[in-house]
Design a protein around this nucleic acid. Structure first.
Length: 223
DNA sequence: GCGACAG
DNA sequence: ATCTTGTCGC
């Protein structure tokens, strides 16, 4: 079994085998403790991709006040391969988490949760490693099919793949493309959608992910 | 064999 | 993801 992230498989077939082995460990029952803080995670790149930049923020619930924000930078080791994103981003995300003074009760990640060909998107993978509830919020689809989403804020349609409901295509703002929400770890789809809606401000993305996104792409910090 | 393809 | 200015709309 893999004990260190730096021992992660480097070939595509090994990585896929590991995903198939880990996916069954993902828990979709709600096991959220009382939520007092919510973290947001996102990864950006510098120097034409040479440097990986992991950002993590922690917001208080329900005030959504930013309590912590950290950035971890390291040389990029893996290329982007659709379906294997977690191998590229999770190691850096974990290092950023090590900088936190608190352990959040919920984590929102930029990317898919179980809405993945092998049910192990970056949010699910990170949740497994952190042993914390995680939700994946992606700006576009990786796999699965869905119907047209009603225009009203908060409306959503199921995202299905090979007979499974793997996520929700959620309208977070009117006249704006919907986001793809999927459970990462330790919670189910209704709960995941619920938390995303509860963390919405006036923008398309929920606050945790929006702020982490800013930090990761160097567009500034939070007040 | 031919597309599709998170960030 | 990232490279990039102005511009349309609530």
């Amino acid at each position: 079994m893999v004990t260190s992230l730096h021992d992660w498989a480097l070939t595509a077939s090994e990585a896929i085998a590991l995903q198939r082995k880990l996916a069954p460990r993902v828990i979709l029952d709600d096991r959220l403790d009382d939520v007092r803080t919510i973290a947001g995670v996102d990864i950006g790149f510098e120097a034409a991709g040479e440097i990986t930049r992991a950002a993590v923020v922690v917001l208080a619930w329900p005030s959504l006040e930013c309590l912590e924000q950290h950035v971890h930078r390291e040389p990029t080791r893996m290329p982007y391969v659709p379906g294997l994103l977690s191998f590229r981003e999770v190691p850096a995300a974990l290092s950023a988490f090590d900088m936190l003074q608190r352990r959040p009760e919920l984590v929102m990640v930029d990317g898919q949760g179980i809405a993945h060909p092998r049910r192990l998107g970056v949010a699910a993978h990170l949740g497994l490693w952190l042993d914390l509830p995680t939700i994946g919020i992606a700006k576009s689809r990786l796999c699965g099919h869905y119907g047209e989403v009603p225009e009203a804020r908060g409306e959503w349609t199921p995202l299905t793949h090979r007979g499974d409901t793997i996520g929700a295509v959620l309208r977070t703002r009117e006249n704006v493309k919907p986001v793809f929400v999927s459970p990462g770890h330790r919670l189910g789809l209704p709960t995941a959608v619920d938390w995303v809606v509860r963390c919405l401000g006036r923008t398309k993305l929920p606050e945790p992910t929006r702020l982490a996104d800013r930090l990761a792409s160097r567009r500034g910090r939070v007040g």
